[in-house]
Write a protein that binds this DNA or RNA. Structure first.
Lengths: 132, 132
DNA sequence: TATACACCTTGTAGTCGCTACAAGGTCAAG
DNA sequence: CTTGACCTTGTAGCGACTACAAGGTGTATA
């Protein structure tokens, strides 16, 4: 299986696959006579894992850790759970931040909706330090 | 007022201020004899505006637009409102994405909480394509 | 006066996770 | 024999900073 085919199968670009190889999260496959990368099903599985973790927002660093744990079948589960839980915490924080931000944006916009011309209240809200 | 003082006042690093100047969102201040940047209160106000907009998640490009509108006191309000509203839309989308992601992470972790050893269900959830 | 130290200057490179592009090699079909 | 799709490598760009190097300035103290 060549890189383009694998890319289509996984829904990523060929460049991304090469990037994962450079980054050391995807093993270098054997090469054909023409020096083309030649992937097998285990590469596809690995790439799938990486993509799913990325889609869930795990960083490359975290994914490296997850892969290490995943490869050590014996004593993985607890450590994996810890990583995933830490990540969930980060996601929760991000959501909370964005919700606070949304409240503020809405407050700003409510004021502006009253049709005030001339001096724009949104601009003023930005200029003054209305405490984030 | 020198760059360090302004930085402390605004809660950013001096490098960030120089970056804003390079990017053209903060005007180049006059220089002292020693070639130090010499800021006045209007710079502080401008920097405040930028920081507040950044904290609200506006991109530098958006901020450039906001500043242009803010500087044209006459016909700003409607355009500003539109920008802010578009931004609110983006924030809403981000929150929805993160919430979907959180649901998935939680589902993964619930399975793992049952104390399964050996074959970790979190790893399996990542390996299989449990439909994001 | 010397010197130590905090502060300033410029320019360059690194961060993250790709993405884009250039310049060239390979292979099958028409 | 040429076209076109695919592959190769290497390098540079994105956004919003951040870090660092190498050097100049200003002030307080020994």
């Amino acid at each position: 299986m060549r890189i383009g085919e694998l890319a289509r199968a996984a829904g990523v670009k060929a460049e991304t696959i090469r990037y994962y190889e450079r980054e050391g999260v995807l093993a270098s496959p054997p090469r054909t006579q023409a020096n083309y990368r030649d992937y097998g099903p285990e590469h596809a599985r690995r790439l799938n894992f990486i993509r799913r973790a990325r889609d869930l927002g795990f960083s490359m660093t975290r994914i490296r850790e997850l892969l290490e744990l995943a490869d050590d079948r014996s004593r993985a589960c607890h450590a994996v759970d810890t990583l995933a839980r830490a990540h969930l915490g980060e996601v929760n924080r991000k959501i909370a931040d964005l919700e606070a931000l949304r409240r503020e944006l809405r407050r700003m916009l409510e004021n502006c909706e009253q049709g005030t011309v001339g001096t724009c209240l949104v601009i003023e809200a930005l200029a003054e330090g209305t405490e984030a």
